[in-house]
């Protein structure tokens, strides 16, 4: 049998397993991105709390300590591969807790995504014109009110493409979690290939499914962005491939 015949054979026999793997991959990526976004939001908000000379010493010291912890979190997670993080977290903690591998995987992805999201959200906050903060402060809003009413709605709109990008990255990168025996797409492909000792055809199926997933989702996200944009459009770079979450805001003509 040639490779194409093997692909046909493996897929016809294992197609429901592949679908199950795909489902698990999507669940992990989606929940991981969503929770990761919330983590990133929280980290970014805390890190941007301004300190003034008027704050008590206790507040200033505790803010410093929290900042150090959050910076360490972001730097450690971004500076090590998710594969290594998964092995340490899963075998170091979750196995002894007897945690369901899927839950453990979602926690790992969320934790990982949170660090990247923290930088993306921070970039989003920085991308909002400073005058917006002054306009809010000058009218009497405190930091929290300014953030929730004025800055974050604009920042999140600006970083929508990056959030979508993280989702796509998570679909692909969750494949490394096959090492902790989660029956996601990569794991299934390894098993299906192993049954006939025909790994290349099985991985080709795997690659094709990933490609279909990411391609479709990217198109859907584009459409959503267009819908949200209204009068102006934003081009934003800032993701795992660009760790500094540098944001380029290209404002086109405002036609409302």
């Amino acid at each position: 049998m040639n490779t194409f015949e093997w692909i046909g054979k493996i897929f016809s026999e294992y197609w429901n397993e592949f679908l199950r793997g795909m489902g698990n991959t999507l669940i992990m990526a989606l929940t991981g991105t969503a929770i990761g976004f919330l983590i990133g939001l929280a980290v970014a908000i805390v890190r941007t709390i301004p300190l003034t000379e008027n704050d008590s010493k206790f507040k200033r010291v505790s803010k410093k300590i929290i900042d150090v912890i959050l910076t360490a979190y972001v730097e450690i997670i971004r500076g090590t591969p998710m594969l290594v993080q998964a092995l340490i977290i899963h075998y170091g903690f979750f196995v002894s807790l007897n945690m369901h591998p899927l839950i453990s995987a979602i926690i790992i992805i969320s934790f990982n995504t949170g660090a990247y999201m923290a930088e993306i959200v921070r970039g989003g906050i920085i991308s909002v014109d400073k005058g917006q903060v002054e306009g809010a402060h000058a009218i009497g809003m405190n930091h929290w009110q300014t953030m929730t009413n004025v800055i974050l709605p604009q920042a999140i709109r600006n970083i929508m493409p990056s959030i979508g990008n993280e989702f796509v990255v998570n679909i692909k990168d969750s494949s490394v979690l096959s090492v902790i025996s989660i029956t996601e797409l990569m794991f299934i492909s390894k098993q299906a290939g192993g049954a006939y000792a025909q790994f290349v055809p099985s991985y080709l199926i795997c690659a094709l499914i990933y490609l279909i997933l990411t391609f479709t989702i990217t198109r859907i996200l584009r459409l959503l962005e267009k819908k949200m944009e209204g009068g102006s459009s934003y081009m934003i770079c800032g993701s795992q491939s660009d760790p500094d979450a540098q944001i380029r805001v290209v404002k086109e003509k405002d036609n409302g």
């Binding site: 005058g131 917006q132 306009g135 809010a136």
Partner: peptide, 30 residues
Amino acid sequence: RTKVGMVFQSFNLYNNMTAFENCVKPQMIV
């Protein structure tokens, strides 16, 4: 700051709100 208002050179209207909401929301929030 609610008693001493400020008008800026660069306006600093909240871009995520309509003109009306710009005037309504701060009253409700602050």
